[in-house]
Amino acid sequence: MDSALKFCTVCASNQNRSMEAHKVLKDAGYDVHSFGTGSAVRLPGPSIDKPNVFPFGTPYEQIYKELIAQDPKLHTANGVLRMIERNRDIKRAPERWPYVGQTKPSSNSGGDSKSRSSTPPGSGLPRDLDFNVIFTCEERCFDAVIEDFLARNYFHPDEGFGEIVHVINVEIRDDYQSALLGGQAILELANMLNEAYQDSLKNYDETSEPFADRVTSILATWQSKNPNHPSLYNVCLN
C-alpha cells in the first residue's frame, strides 16, 4: 500500500491497547507506529498498590525476562506475558510520545523508528510525527496528544508544513479482552478512512471531495456501529 494513510496508535504505556491496534493495523498492511503518553510503562505487579514500572525504551524482551523472574505464574495468569510476547514480535521497546521540549530518547529506545526517520533536509525539528491519522485509546491520551501539538504550534510556530493530522480517540478499557475488541474497532475505522482516502486520490476535479471533508461523516457512521467506543476527534497542525 504505497499511498495508504499513515497511522499511529497511542495509549498510556504502549503495551496493551496501542500495541494490539498496532498489530492489527500492521497485519492489515498499513504503515503504523505506536507510542505511550504516560510517564513510564506500568504493568500489574504482585499487588494492586505495587505495579511494575519500567522506563520507556526498556526492550520488551527485557521486561519479559524480569517478569518471568518475578512470578511466572502470576504473569501468565493475568495475561501479561502473553501480551509482551505479542509485543516483542512487533517492535523492540515501548516508546514514549515525543513531547516537545522533552529530551530525545536515546536511539535504542524505539523499535522500527529507522524506517520512519524521514527528516526533510532543512526543517528544524525532525518530522517525527509524520502521520495522517493518530488513534488514541483513552481520553487522557487524546488530551495529552492534542496539548502537545498545541505546544508545538506555540513554541515552534514556523516549523513544519502545518500538515493536517487527524487525531481520533477510540475509547478502550485497559484489559486484554477489551484491547482485542478495540483493535478490531480501530481497524474497521482505519479501513473506512483509508477507503475514503484512496477514493479521494482517484479524481481531481471540482466535484471530488477531499479526504479531510469526509472524516467527520465517516466517524459518525462508524460511531453508530460502535457505540461502546465513544470517540473524540480534533485536527492538529504538524
Binding site: F142, Y154, Y233
Partner: peptide, 27 residues
C-alpha cells in the same frame, strides 16, 4: 439530517476547548 454527527461535532469542539484551557493553565 444526521443528528448523531451534529452531537459528535459539538462534543469534539467542546473537548478541544477544554484541552485549550488546560494547555493555557498548565503552561
Amino acid at each position: 439530517t444526521d443528528m448523531l454527527k451534529v452531537k459528535m461535532v459539538q462534543r469534539y469542539n467542546d473537548r478541544f476547548n477544554k484541552i485549550l484551557i488546560s494547555f493555557l493553565l498548565n503552561r
